[in-house]
């Protein structure tokens, strides 16, 4: 693998090409200033955003757009908090009107405490959204059949969880993630579960096109520093994947020659 291949290493989703393989959420930070700083440090080019009611009692409250410039970052509206297909579709139609973007992140969730992807609702919503002209990046269970079916329906990226949302448990299902990836030709991302930099590196070493995370940065003691760590981990994991890891062996294989030893 030579340097030129690494320099040209980009990925493309729904016709848009990106250099950063880290997508970050904009939620759960101390304040909007910290949000902006951490996102800048992460090097991300895509950020997920939520859609909520305006606080009508304080119309001049600072807005996310003032700290995370939509001209600089691709806003990826999500459906977090939606527990039915109908809620998700309604939310994203509003998001499209608010922002003018067709590229969205669909998640239809089951109840707490797991917030596990509700695949029946996810399929329903994906079908309605695709019919309505959306480009759907879809959060899903680590189910190879579901991944293939979502791709066949027209989803533009498949994004299974590595562990429950916000759990920080890391990639609990590396084998299943690898098996899913073999079913999929559109971009494939791990979307939840990353807790620290090594988790992100593992996802990239498995061959994911990118990683989506939020809490691992926002809930770190120093979010801006963790954002830098994630940027480095994603790059390291990607390089390691491209480099191709050495084979594992059940025993030692010395690096120094065993010949020419002094006696």
């Amino acid at each position: 693998m030579d340097g030129s291949i690494v320099a040209d290493d980009t990925w493309t989703v729904a016709g848009r090409t990106f250099r950063s393989r880290l997508i970050v959420g904009t939620g759960r930070y101390k304040d909007l200033e910290e949000t902006g700083k951490a996102i800048e440090a992460s090097g991300a080019e895509i950020v997920t955003v939520a859609l909520r009611r305006v606080n009508l009692s304080d119309p001049n409250a600072p807005m996310l757009q003032d700290y995370v410039d939509p001209k600089k970052y691709t806003y990826l509206p999500n459906t977090a908090g939606c527990f039915t297909a109908n809620e998700a579709v309604r939310t994203l139609r509003l998001a499209r009107e608010a922002g003018g973007w067709n590229l969205v992140k669909l998640e239809v969730l089951g109840p707490p405490p797991l917030l596990y992807p509700d695949m029946q609702g996810t399929f329903q919503a994906a079908e309605a959204l695709i019919k309505d002209g959306f480009e759907v990046m879809v959060y899903c269970a680590d189910d190879p059949l579901a991944a293939k079916r979502l791709q066949d329906m027209g989803c533009v990226a498949i994004m299974p969880l590595g562990a429950p949302i916000g759990s920080g448990l890391g990639i609990q299902n590396p084998a299943m993630i690898s098996m899913m990836m073999e079913q999929v030709t559109v971009p494939f991302l791990v979307d939840a579960g990353v807790g620290t930099a090594s988790d992100a590196a593992i996802a990239m070493e498995l061959g994911c096109d990118a990683v989506l995370l939020n809490s691992a940065i926002a809930h770190a003691k120093n979010p801006v520093l963790m954002a830098k760590a994630m940027k480095a981990a994603i790059e390291a994991g990607r390089l390691a994947y491209l480099a191709g890891r050495m084979p594992r062996r059940m025993g030692a294989d010395p690096s120094s020659p065993l010949t020419g030893l002094i006696r």
């Binding site: 959420g25 904009t26 939620g27 759960r28 930070y29 909007l32 949000t35 997920t48 955003v49 939520a50 859609l51 909520r52 009611r53 305006v54 009508l56 807005m63 996310l64 757009q65 806003y75 509206p77 999500n78 977090a80 139609r93 509003l94 998001a95 009107e97 608010a98 922002g99 949302i165 916000g166 995370l213 939020n214 809490s215 926002a218």
Partner: peptide, 28 residues
Amino acid sequence: EIVPRSRYAETWLASGDSLEIVHFIGGG
């Protein structure tokens, strides 16, 4: 029903209407 931005000026409100006014906030 979504009200397109281009039609705000000509969309008249009547008593009993229910409106949702939303914007982007931080989210993961």
